[in-house]
Simulated scan of single mutants.
Amino acid sequence: MASKDILAEVAAERSRQDARWGGSGHDDAMTMTEFARLIADYAGWARVKAREGALDEARLRFLQVAALAVAAVERLDRDRSGASAPAPAPRDIDWE
Rank of each mutant, 00 (worst) to 15 (best):
Y42M: 02
E34H: 05
D77L: 11
Q17V: 00
F35R: 09
L60S: 15
D77E: 14
A67C: 04
R75L: 05
E74N: 11
L60F: 11
R61C: 15
A19T: 11
G44R: 01
A50H: 07
A66W: 05
R61H: 13
S24N: 01
V65T: 14
E52F: 03
H26D: 07
S24M: 06
E74V: 10
R59N: 11
A8S: 13
T33V: 04
L68N: 13
R80A: 10
W21Q: 07
S15H: 08
L68V: 06
A40S: 14
R75W: 01
G82Q: 02
V65G: 12
L38F: 06
Q17N: 02
V48S: 08
F62W: 09
T33N: 03
R78G: 03
A12V: 10
R16Q: 11
A29F: 00
P88D: 11
G82N: 01
A12G: 08
L68R: 07
W45F: 10
A12E: 15
Q17S: 00
E57R: 00
G23P: 05
R75M: 11
R59Q: 08
S84M: 07
Y42V: 09
A67W: 03
S81C: 02
A83G: 01
D41A: 09
A50Y: 02
R47H: 01
A58M: 02
L7G: 00
W45Y: 08
E9L: 13
G23V: 06
R14T: 06
T33Y: 00
P88H: 11
S15W: 01
R80Y: 00
E13T: 12
E52K: 12
A89E: 14
A69L: 07
R51A: 15
F62Y: 10
V70G: 04
M30H: 03
A89K: 11
L63Q: 08
D77F: 07
K49R: 13
A83T: 01
A72G: 09
F35W: 13
R14S: 07
A19R: 08
L55W: 13
L60R: 15
D28S: 13
E9W: 00
R61F: 14
A85N: 09
A43P: 02
M32V: 06
A36V: 12
T33I: 01
R51H: 13
R78V: 01
R14W: 08
D28V: 00
A43N: 09
E13K: 12
R14K: 08
E52Q: 15
R61V: 01
